[in-house]
Design a protein around this nucleic acid. Structure first.
Length: 766
DNA sequence: CGGACGATCCTTTTT
DNA sequence: GGATCGTCCG
C-alpha cells in the first residue's frame, strides 16, 4: 500500500496532499470521498504527524470504524488506534468527561436518549399541570433540540421574539419554561441529551479559553466528513478548534444535504469560502459507482434545485440500463412487483442477496416488503425501527448499570424502581418525584435522605424503598471489584429480572431472556477485547459506547448476504448494485409535511438524489395507486419527482392487470410527466417485464394470486400452521366471523394460543 | 397495586 | 395496523 497516491485521480490526489490550510472538498456522489479522507489522514501520518494531533469527525460510528481500518492497512493499527476519530457525539462526549469539572457535571454523567428525554418532558408537563395533548413531548423536545443546536439557552429563548412568537402561534407559549426546567432536571440527574453533548462542548470552549487552547494545540489537523449536514453547534465547535492552525479539511456534497430537520445547515458548506478565506477548493466530479444513465438521471433531477455549488458529476462507466418505473395497484402489490423483479435480477445478473437494497421514505413502509420477502424465503436485514438497545428488557437492564454509575439518573431510576415488580407503585413514585422536584434534588437523593420517613409513606412502602436503595448500593460496592461482565451477570441474577422472566413462561419472556443473554454476550466481548488490549474495562465505558450506537453500528456476521431494507436517510454513504426506491407517491415522497415550502421540497429532492445515486447498475422506482394509511385504504397519486427525471433515462413498465387503467393511475402527476413520458408505451416489451417473467418461471406462484398470502378463510380446524414466533402448531378451534375469526392453536413449543387471524400471520403447512 | 382491555393518536427522516 | 395511554376491575 505504499503507493497509495497512485490509486487516486488527479483531483483526489491534490485533495490528499494539500494538507496545510483550510480545504473544501466538494465530493459528488460516488466520487471517492471516503478514499480521499482515508488517504489524506494516512498521508499526514506518513509525513510524521502524530495520530493524536489529528481529529476526524464522521457522521456514524460505522464510517469511523471503517475508515480507521483502512488507515490501519497503510500505517499499521498501532498508529491508527491513536487517532481521534469518531462521530461528533462520541468524540465530544469523551472530551466532556475529561473536562467535566469545568462545566458542573459529574465525570460519570449519563447520556439520555430520545426516550429518556421524552419521559423527562412528560414528568415536567405533569409538574406544570400541562396537558400532554397540547404539549406533545416529541414536539416539545424538537423545539428544545432546535434551540440547543442554535446555542440558544433557556434565558435567551425566553427573550427570543422569533421563538416565542412561533410557540405562541403553535399554542405552546410555555415551551421556554419547560426548556428551562428540562435543563435543570438534566443537571440534577447528571445527564446530557444528544444535543447537550455539542452544546456543552461549546459552553466549555466559550467559558474556558485555556481548555480550548489545549485542544486547539492538540488538534492541529481537523477533518470533517458530511460537512453539509453539520448544525450550528457542530459548525462552531469546528471553527473554534481550527482557529489557531486552520488546517481544517471539510468534505461534503451540498446536493446530499438531507438533515435540516434536525438542525443541519446547508449554509455551513455554502459559506465555507467566507469563513476560511484563502481556502483551497477541490471538486471530485467523476462518479466511479454508477452507470452513466443513473448519474445523468440524477443530475437531471437535482438541476431543479436552486443555489448549488456548481459541479458536473459524470461517469465513465457503461451507459447501463434505463431507470425502471413500476406502478402497482396497491401497496401490497408493490411489494410483489419489487420482490419479483428482485428475483429476476438475482438470476439474470447473477447477483447475491446483498447486492439489493429496498429504500423507503418512512420506516412504516418496511412491513409489506418484509412479509413478501419472508414468504419468498429471501433473507433480508432491516435497519431502523426498534433497535436492539431500545428494547424494553435491554433498556431496563442498562438502567441498572446507569443507576450503579450515576444514581442521580432519575430516568433510569423511574424505569427500575419497580422492575421487577417490588410493590412500589405509581402513587409512591409520583410522591417521590414531586418531592424531588420541589426540593430541587434527584429522586435518589430523596430516597437516601434521613427524613424520608417523614413524607408519610406507610411502613411497608418505606421498607420496600429501603430494599431498593440497599440493592443498588450493594451493586455499587461490587462494581469496584468486578469487571463489566461479572457485574452485569450479578445484576441480572440478583435484581430478580431473570427470575421474573422465567416465571411467566411465555414466548415473549423467552425472547426477552434471549435478548438479555445477547446483551451479556456483548458485554463479555467488550470486556474481553478491552482486557486483551490492556485497556480499562468498566461498565461505564460499555454504557458510553452503547448509548451512542445506532442500529447501523450493529453489523452482525450472520447479516452477510441479505437484502437490505432501510430508509433513504440511513442509506446515505452506502452503495448497492440494485436499488429499489419504493413509495414514489405524493404526500409520502415528497412528504406531505414539507412539500409546501420550497426549501422543504428541495430537501426532499436531494433525498431522492441520494436514493438514486446509491445504485451502481439498476435503479428501480415504484409507486402504488392505493395504500393503507392509518388503517384505511387511501388513493394516492404518483410522486411529482417521477416527472422531474429526464424521460430519456426512464423505462416504464405497465399495468399488468388492466392496461387501460394505467394512464389514469398517474392522476395529476401524469401531466407533469410531459409528452415524452406519456408517449412511452405503458407496457414495454423488454426482457425484464413482468408478465414474461411469470411465464419464464412457471413453477413459481403467480404474482397476483390470492394464494400468495395466507387467507384467513382458508384456515380450518385440524390444520397444521406455522407462526413467526410460536413455531408450529395445530388449529384446535375457530370462533367468530368475517375478519374477526379467532383461532385456538396448540403449538408444540409455545403451548395453546388464541390468535386473531387477521393479525397473526399464520402460514399453512402441508 | 397490577394486569387486561379498549380508545386514541398516529407517521417523516436520526445522532 | 399498531403503539401507547387511560380506565376498569380483581
Amino acid at each position: 500500500m505504499q503507493n497509495y497516491l497512485e490509486l487516486l485521480n488527479p483531483a483526489q490526489r491534490e485533495a490528499v496532499i494539500s494538507t496545510e490550510g483550510p480545504s473544501l472538498v466538494i465530493a459528488g456522489a460516488g466520487s471517492g470521498k471516503t478514499r480521499v479522507l482515508t488517504y489524506r489522514i494516512a498521508h499526514l501520518l506518513k509525513n510524521g504527524v502524530p495520530p493524536w494531533n489529528i481529529l476526524a469527525l464522521t457522521f456514524t460510528n460505522k464510517a469511523a470504524r471503517e475508515m480507521k481500518e483502512r488507515i490501519a492497512t497503510v500505517v499499521g493499527s498501532k498508529v491508527a488506534a491513536h487517532l481521534w476519530m469518531g462521530t461528533f457525539h462520541s468524540i465530544f462526549a469523551r472530551i466532556l468527561r475529561i473536562e467535566a469539572q469545568h462545566i458542573n457535571f459529574p465525570k460519570n454523567f449519563t447520556i439520555y436518549d430520545t426516550a429518556d428525554s421524552k419521559s423527562l418532558i412528560k414528568s415536567i408537563l405533569k409538574e406544570m399541570k400541562l396537558a400532554e395533548k397540547e404539549y406533545k413531548p416529541g414536539d416539545v423536545l424538537s423545539r428544545i433540540s432546535s434551540a440547543k443546536n442554535d446555542l440558544v439557552l433557556p434565558h435567551t429563548y425566553a427573550r427570543d421574539q422569533h421563538r416565542i412568537m412561533a410557540d405562541k402561534a403553535a399554542r405552546k407559549p410555555l415551551i421556554h419554561d419547560i426548556y428551562n426546567r428540562y435543563m435543570r432536571a438534566c443537571m440534577k440527574s447528571g445527564a446530557m441529551d444528544f444535543d447537550d453533548l455539542l452544546l456543552n462542548t461549546n459552553l466549555l470552549f466559550r467559558d474556558h479559553p485555556e481548555v480550548l487552547a489545549n485542544y486547539q494545540e492538540q488538534f492541529r489537523y481537523i477533518l470533517v466528513d458530511e460537512y453539509q449536514d453539520t448544525n450550528v453547534s457542530q459548525y462552531l465547535i469546528i471553527r473554534k478548534l481550527a482557529d489557531k492552525y486552520k488546517n481544517v479539511c471539510v468534505v461534503g456534497d451540498d446536493a446530499q444535504s438531507i438533515y435540516s430537520f434536525r438542525g443541519a445547515k446547508i449554509e455551513n458548506i455554502l459559506n465555507f469560502r467566507n469563513d476560511y478565506p484563502g481556502y483551497q477548493l477541490f471538486k471530485l466530479e467523476q462518479n466511479y459507482r454508477s452507470t452513466q444513465t443513473i448519474v445523468n438521471a440524477a443530475n437531471s433531477l437535482i438541476a431543479k434545485n436552486k443555489g448549488q455549488i456548481p459541479k458536473k458529476v459524470f461517469s465513465n462507466k457503461s451507459e447501463g440500463n434505463p431507470i425502471k418505473i413500476m406502478q402497482a395497484f396497491s401497496d401490497v402489490e408493490e411489494g410483489f412487483l419489487v420482490v419479483n423483479d428482485l428475483k429476476n435480477k438475482l438470476l439474470e445478473f447473477s447477483c447475491q442477496y446483498e447486492d439489493f437494497a429496498i429504500l423507503y421514505r418512512t420506516n412504516a413502509q418496511s412491513r409489506i416488503f418484509e412479509d413478501v420477502l419472508r414468504k419468498n424465503n429471501i433473507p433480508y436485514k432491516i435497519y431502523g425501527g426498534l433497535s436492539f438497545y431500545q428494547r424494553k428488557e435491554i433498556k431496563d437492564l442498562l438502567a441498572y448499570f446507569r443507576m450503579i454509575i450515576n444514581s442521580n439518573d432519575s430516568e433510569a431510576l423511574k424505569r427500575i424502581i419497580n422492575f421487577p415488580a417490588r410493590g412500589i407503585g405509581k402513587t409512591t413514585l409520583e410522591k417521590l418525584e414531586a418531592t424531588a422536584a420541589h426540593n430541587g434534588v434527584s429522586i435518589w437523593e430523596v430516597l437516601v435522605h434521613p427524613e424520608l420517613s417523614k413524607l408519610g409513606f406507610n411502613a411497608g412502602t418505606l421498607k420496600k424503598l429501603g430494599g431498593f436503595v440497599a440493592l443498588i448500593r450493594e451493586f455499587q460496592a461490587k462494581s469496584f471489584n468486578l469487571d463489566a461482565f461479572q457485574l452485569a451477570s450479578e445484576v441480572v441474577s440478583q435484581s430478580g429480572i431473570l427470575k421474573e422472566l422465567h416465571q411467566d413462561n411465555t414466548p415473549e419472556s423467552q425472547s426477552r431472556i434471549e435478548n438479555i443473554d445477547e446483551l451479556l454476550n456483548a458485554i463479555k466481548d467488550f470486556s474481553d477485547s478491552r482486557k486483551e488490549s490492556g485497556q480499562e474495562n468498566s461498565i461505564t465505558l460499555f454504557l458510553e459506547e452503547v448509548s451512542l450506537l445506532t442500529d447501523q453500528d450493529n453489523d452482525k456476521a450472520e447479516d452477510k448476504n441479505k437484502v437490505t431494507l432501510m430508509t433513504i436517510h440511513s442509506a446515505k454513504g452506502l452503495e448497492f448494485r440494485n436499488v429499489y426506491i419504493v413509495g414514489m407517491e405524493e404526500d409520502l415522497f415528497p412528504s406531505g409535511r414539507v412539500s409546501e415550502s420550497e426549501s422543504g421540497l428541495e430537501e426532499e429532492r436531494r433525498l431522492f438524489y441520494v436514493a438514486i445515486t446509491r445504485a451502481e447498475e439498476h435503479a428501480v422506482l415504484s409507486f402504488a395507486k392505493r395504500r393503507f394509511k392509518y388503517g384505511d385504504m387511501t388513493y394516492v397519486r404518483a410522486s411529482r419527482f417521477l416527472g422531474e427525471l429526464d424521460p430519456s433515462y426512464i423505462e416504464m413498465t405497465g399495468d399488468t392487470i388492466q392496461q387501460n387503467q394505467a394512464t389514469d393511475n398517474f392522476g395529476s402527476a401524469n401531466q407533469r410527466f410531459g409528452k415524452s413520458f406519456e408517449k412511452q408505451p405503458a407496457f414495454t416489451p423488454k426482457k425484464f417485464n413482468f408478465s414474461e417473467s411469470i411465464n419464464k418461471n412457471p413453477e413459481k406462484k403467480p404474482l397476483f394470486s390470492e394464494n400468495a398470502f395466507t387467507n384467513a378463510f382458508d384456515i380450518k380446524i385440524g390444520m397444521s400452521v406455522q407462526h413467526e414466533r410460536f413455531g408450529i402448531g395445530e388449529v384446535t378451534s375457530l370462533e367468530g366471523t368475517g375478519s374477526n375469526v379467532k383461532a385456538t392453536v396448540l403449538f408444540s413449543n409455545a403451548g395453546e394460543k388464541q390468535l386473531l387471524l387477521k393479525f397473526a400471520k399464520l402460514k399453512i403447512l402441508n
